[in-house]
Nucleic acid binder design. Sequence first.
DNA 1: ACAGGATCCTGGGGGC
DNA 2: TGCCCCCAGGATCCTG
Length: 277
Amino acid sequence: MPELPEVETVVRDLRPRVCGQRIDAIKTSKLPLRREWSRNWNDAIVGSRIEEASRRGKWILFHLDSKAVLVFHLGMTGQLTVVPEMQSQLDHTHLIFNLGRAEQLRFRDIRRFGSVTLFHDSTALDEFFQASRLGPEPFQVDPSYWRERMRRTKRCVKNVLLDQQVVAGVGNIYADESLFEARLHPELAADRVNRQQAERLRVAIEKVLTRAIEKRGSTIRNYVGGSGLSGEFQQEFQAYGRNGKPCVRCGETISRIVIGGRSTHFCPRCQRIRNRS
DNA sequence: ACAGGATCCTGGGGGC
DNA sequence: TGCCCCCAGGATCCTG
């Protein structure tokens, strides 16, 4: 499910509802997530207050007053919401944190590709991000960055966009939407991307992500924000999931191919391998 | 280095 | 109604 715009929406929704709240109790389910929940974490967390909620790539960070950082990844179907404790519990709810005001922070994940980890302090978290070589935020790269990264690989641009070490937060939907916006063929070899194309790509990614955040992300099936609301950007898709439909720019039929095992949608007329510009 | 495939899971949809 | 197959916003491991 969740790429940068969805994760950003969750964090913005949750921030006012969790910041300043103390975690009074934790309930865990038996089923494992991608990382197993450590029993020690209960003791380390209970009694702490959440000071801040933030995002890094597709990761959600809760900074506790104990200096520990509670970190979530939503995988494909993760949902992180604050609800009244009286609200009935949905299937696949794996973690419940009791907050003040008779509210709970709940983590639900149907496919259990999501993960939760507790880091002792922000240094330990930084080390984790460094070890995984997580790339920069797409809004913080300077104009030369994309060209720089592209020229040193022959991989196709779609795969480069999905690589979290290149840029953090872009997933399958926003890769396709950004390439459509930039009029680049997803199978274009990265080292053949020229200066103008790289700049178009940088601008396109920022534009697509910004608009998607404004629309609270995209809901295909499972995604909801931190208050349980769906996103609406799926109504503005121009490429993703539109195979067989006419291109909004030129009327050509949108194609679907598979790249790196991920379905990929593009306009064969607007997005050519050989590009005039 | 990199592509491709399998894997971790559950559920929805289509075809028969 | 059931069954089987394919598909899904991600990441990681293994092979060639």
